[in-house]
Design a binder for these strands. Sequence first.
DNA 1: CAGTGGTCTAGACCACAGT
DNA 2: CTGTGGTCTAGACCACTGT
Lengths: 251, 251
Amino acid sequence: MIDPIAPTPPKKPPSRVPVYLAAADTLAEQIADQPVGTRLPSEEELAKQLGISRLTARAALAALERRYLVRRRQGSGTFVSRRVDYLISRHHPPSWSQSVRSAGLTPDVRTTGWRLASPSPDVRRRMRIGPRRQVLALSRDRFIDNELVGFAESFFDTAVVPDLTQVLDPAASLYGVLADHYGLQPVRGWFGVAIDPAPPEVAEHLGLTGRPPVISIRSRTDAAARDHRPVELTVSWLRADVFRVEIDFDT
Amino acid sequence: MIDPIAPTPPKKPPSRVPVYLAAADTLAEQIADQPVGTRLPSEEELAKQLGISRLTARAALAALERRYLVRRRQGSGTFVSRRVDYLISRHHPPSWSQSVRSAGLTPDVRTTGWRLASPSPDVRRRMRIGPRRQVLALSRDRFIDNELVGFAESFFDTAVVPDLTQVLDPAASLYGVLADHYGLQPVRGWFGVAIDPAPPEVAEHLGLTGRPPVISIRSRTDAAARDHRPVELTVSWLRADVFRVEIDFDT
DNA sequence: CAGTGGTCTAGACCACAGT
DNA sequence: CTGTGGTCTAGACCACTGT
C-alpha cells in the first residue's frame, strides 16, 4: 500500500540564478523564433548591452551551445542552430539524406575510397565471417551544406558481393545496388547506438577539438534472398551537436 | 568505379594544443587507472602544480567532466567517475537496478506516491486509451549510493490492473506484480529513447543547473495474456553524465 | 570554521574568417 | 586589414560541504 501525492508540494527557497544563465535564458527566448543561421551579437557587443564582462557573455553563449541552440565559429560568429532529427525505427529504416532534407538542408555523401581490410574481431562476429577472410572496407563522408558532419565505414562480405568496386558509383545508393544488381533483397538485420566522447581518430577526422560527444551507429544489412546472410556492416559517426537521434521501436 | 584509399595521407600542420586540453589529457591518463571515487587535487593545487592559472586548471577539469571521467561537487571536490552502462536490447529487457549493481554500485528505487491523472494525448495514443478515461500515475525516484540520478512516471490502465495501489508495495517489482498477482504475462511492447537538454521541470527535480543533457526512455508493457493489450507506459529520465545508454537490437 | 568549486571582473594576446 | 571567437592571466567574492 502506497500513499497518494500531496497536492501542495513543499516550498523551496528560490536559489539565485547566475548572471550567465539568466542571460542564456533571455537569449534563448529571443532566438526561439529566429530562423536557423541568424547571427547573434558578438561577445563584446553582448557584454556591453547586458552590462556584463565578456567572459560572462561568453559563458551564456556556451550554455546555449550546450543546449544545441547556437553554433559558434571562430573568426566568424555565433549563429542560431537546431539539431537535425534522425529517427531510427523498425518500419522506417534510417535514411540519413532524407532526414537532412526534411530539415530543409542539403545532404551530400562522398565516397572517399575503399581498401581490403582484416576487420576487427567484433566486426567479424557481427558479420559471421571467419578469422582469415578479408572484407571490402568503404569509406564515406557526410556533409550538410558542405560542412563535414559525419562519416561512415562499411564492411562488405566479398563472397556475397563480388566486384563491388567495379559496380559501385560514388553517387549510387548502396541499398539500390544490393537490391538491383545483386538481387539480395537487403533487410536491416541488427543495429546498435550509443553516444560517447569522440575517440581521437574520429575527432580528428571531423575536425573537432576537445572530445565532444559523437553518436556511433552500427547497423548490419542481411540478404533475405540468401537465407538472411549478413552482407554489410556500417559503422558511422555523427556529430551529436548536429543530430538528434531518436529510437522508436515496436518489439 | 571508385578509387582505393591512398596509402600515404597528406600531411597536416600540427596545430597547437591549448594548455587546458593538454592538461586534461595528462590528467585523463593519470586517473585512467584510479578507482571511481578517488579525489583529484583542488583547482588551486592543480594550478600551482602545473604552473597555470586557476581558470585554466578549471577548464581542464571541465573538459574531463564533459568526457564523463570526473564529477565535481561544489564545496567538496573533483572525483574520478565513470558512467554506468545501461543496455537496452530485445532479449535482455532493461533492468536499471541490475545495471547499477553490475557497476558495483548500490541502486535504490523509491516510490514517492501516486495520483489519478488525465494523461497527455501522446500517452493516450501509445496506450490506446480513450479521451476521457483516467489512468493511475505512479512516481518513482532512482538513487545510486543515495544520490538522485533519475526518476520515472508510470501510467497504468486501471481497467487492466484494478486496485493496483492496494497491491503494490513501495519496494515491490512492478513486473512481478503484473505477472504474479494479475497473471498478465507482461512483455515489452514499445520503447523510445532520445537525449535532450533537460526540460526545466526535469532539471529542477534532479537538482541540475543549466540544462544539461538527460536521457529520456519511454517504454510500454503489454499483456500477452490479454491479446497484447497495453498495461503500462513508463516515462523515465536519467542523468546523461551518470548513464551510458546503449541500444543493441536484432530486427 | 577552512577548503572546495562556482561566478564574475578587466585586461591581454592569439587564431581564424571574411573583406 | 578588421572583427570574430579561443585562450590565458591575476585577482576577487560567493555558495556550499564537511569538520
